[in-house]
Design a protein around this nucleic acid. Structure first.
Length: 425
RNA sequence: GGAGAGGUGGCCGAGCGGUCGAAGGCGCUCCCCUGCUAAGGGAGUAAACCGGGAGACCGGUUUCGAGGGUUCGAAUCCCUCCCUCUCCGCCA
């Protein structure tokens, strides 16, 4: 959610941002400003009426205490029309507020000036490729073949028990999963993150706070009976942790890591995108979240990005860093990087992390604030998050990258203390 | 799930339908006093929104878990919901 003041003062910038993000309903801004003007006019009227009503009421109180009941009664008789007027104005203001809030939710965040303007994925900027793609003297297999050969993942039974996209991890596969979670959490801990284990379900208010509602409703599973959503990412519960709170200035920055499963409906995906571990309805992820002073958020974005990259460096997995263009970055972000790991068996890049600075966009919705100094007024924080990392595609890349000619799979050294084995044969 | 109790400012805790944004205490900030420390004295100490001003600020409205209602007037009375605590049931 953007600041109304910003929209009032720079409607042009907002329209431009909307166009850059591929949202062409720029007339939305005009509607919003129109509603805002009406709202303020009505609010002033309402407050004047209330002021008069308060004055009269306290006069009645004074008269009653003085025993002048008949004079008081005369005043009481006069309040009828005023009361009606207040009621009407109240309803009008409430309706306008609601309308305004709804419109405000439809206006996306403004991209940072460093973000390339573009329409689609094709306009993203590949900034750097880190690590060497492996060379094989045999034909490398895709991970689903390897996983099946070694009995690491059971897709079919997952489909039987829950549905497509809900695999079983079995034996060393399950162990590998657990090892990666611990490895990622430990790396985050070393980098100064506080570990948190959040609820795996969220209420609608939380989903709105981080921007999954109202515009990305189809992303999430729903539990209508209890009005809950299984989390699509730990970002939601972790960031909402501070919803409606005013933090001490010296409590910033807050850096939190959290392991959770994530559930996503992934409606409309098909083909090679969903093969094997490429796209699942349930997957594990370690998430990194920063809550920072507004002046620090772009520095924090780079730190967060490095923290998200570290596991891949330590695992010896080649990856590339992509700066998302305006059209591909999403509604709530001001700037976003994607990290893509190299899938040696599929010969393609797989997104394993997306690292975003939301500036105050989420904080404003959630009312997460901090007090810069003891007596100062609260200000909105900036929030950021990034995966560190999403597991399935890392598992895919690991299996494919470290497969040997004899069909065995090596475990990178950094991970061996966690797996307790150094090879899958 | 059943029965009961309760939700007040950063915290604890009063509160009669009108003079309550709310006593008192703690904490915090500033000042005074005291050769350090401790103790003491004084002042201050919420947020959002609307309007005014270049601005430090000024005026107003709203907010005592949330939302409705009664009333000229609600922290105080009524209804609904949420949350917390105690007991019972159920259970990892």
């Amino acid at each position: 959610m953007l600041d109304l003041g910003t929209i009032r003062q720079h409607p042009g910038r907002v329209r431009e941002a909307m166009r850059a993000k591929g949202l062409d309903d720029t007339e939305l801004v005009d509607r919003l400003l129109d509603v805002d003007e009406q709202r303020r006019a009505k609010t002033t009227e309402l407050q004047d009426a209330q002021e008069r009503s308060n004055t009269i009421s306290s006069e009645i109180g004074t008269l009653k205490r003085a025993g002048k009941d008949d004079e008081a009664q005369a005043l009481i008789d006069e309040t009828g029309t005023l009361k009606k007027r207040i009621k009407t104005l109240k309803d009008a203001v409430a309706a306008l507020k609601e309308k305004q809030a709804a419109l405000l939710l439809e206006i996306p965040n403004i991209p940072h000036p460093s973000v390339p303007v573009g329409a689609t994925e094709a306009d993203n900027e590949v900034l750097e490729t880190i690590g060497e793609k492996p060379a094989f003297d045999f034909e490398p297999a895709p991970h689903w073949t390897l996983a099946e050969q070694h009995g690491l993942i059971d897709f079919e039974r997952g489909a039987k028990v829950a549905g497509a996209g809900f695999p079983f991890y079995v034996g060393k596969g399950a162990r590998l999963q657990r090892a990666l979670i611990n490895f990622f959490l430990d790396l985050a801990g070393e980098a100064g993150y506080d570990e948190m284990q959040p609820p795996f379900f969220i209420n609608p208010q939380s989903a709105e706070g981080t921007g999954q509602l109202p515009d990305k409703e189809d992303l999430m599973y729903e539990i209508p009976r209890d009005d809950l959503y299984p989390i699509p990412t730990a970002e939601v519960p972790v960031t909402n942790y501070w919803r409606d709170e005013i933090l001490d200035g010296d409590a910033l920055p807050r850096k939190v890591c959290a392991y959770t499963p994530c559930w996503r409906r992934e409606a409309g995906s098909y083909g090679k995108d969903v093969r094997g571990l490429n796209r699942l309805h349930q997957f594990d992820k370690v998430e990194l979240v920063h809550v920072v002073h507004p002046d620090e958020s772009y520095r924090a974005l780079e730190t967060l990005r490095q923290d998200a990259e570290r596991p891949m460096v330590r695992l010896g997995l080649p990856y590339r860093r992509v700066l998302m263009c305006t059209g591909d970055m999403g509604f709530t972000q001001a700037k976003k990087y994607d990290l893509e790991v190299w899938s040696a068996g599929q010969e393609r890049w797989l997104e394993v992390s997306s690292i975003s600075n939301f500036e105050a966009f989420q904080a404003r919705r959630m009312q997460i604030r901090f007090r810069p100094e003891a007596e100062a007024n609260p200000e909105l924080v900036h929030t950021l998050n990034g995966s560190g990392l999403a597991l399935p595609r890392i598992v895919a890349a690991l299996l494919e990258q470290y497969q040997q000619a004899d069909g065995s799979i090596r475990i990178p050294e950094a991970l061996q203390p966690y797996t307790g084995f150094d090879v899958i044969e």
